[in-house]
Amino acid sequence: MKETFTKGMARNIYYGGSLFFLLLFFALTFDTVSELPDRDNRQAINESVTLGKKVWEVNNCIGCHTLLGEGAYFAPELGNVVKRYGSKAAVKAFIMSRPAAGIPGRRSMPQFNLTEEELQGVADFLEYVGGVNTEGWPPNIQG
């Protein structure tokens, strides 16, 4: 930190380093986006999945659950929930069955009063997310 290392040198490292790594980040992003079609299960996206993502968002599901590990940590991971429950029908049945007044003393998912179409959408959306190549995450079926 003595005079051999000047403020000007520090400034140049800041500008040069930031610019270089920002450009590298853009290049990696470009490569990532071009590799995604083989990884992100986009062929599964249809009208029902689109509706399902909307239902997922406007009911703020991420406020309690994680999806591919991101979100809140109050309720179970849902990226692999269709596999964990064995079928989309089971997932739908669970969502439908939630008591409106909750369960005394315990965490309980709210009753969202979804229509059959919306329920199907959510289940299709979760199945689609389950098909993303996540490099083997989560470690086991419990999420």
Binding site: K7, A10, R11, I13, Y14, G17, S18, F21, L22, L24, F25, L28, D31, T32, E35, L36, R39, D40, L68, G69, E70, V132, N133, T134, E135, W137, P138
Partner: peptide
């Protein structure tokens, strides 16, 4: 300058620690 240089040099590509399990390469 040293602090913010180190911040951006590590932090920008460091974004990658969020890309492990969400479908990215």
């Amino acid at each position: 300058y040293i602090i913010i240089a180190l911040t951006l040099i590590s932090g920008i590509i460091g974004t990658g620690h969020h890309y492990f399990w969400i479908g990215a390469p």
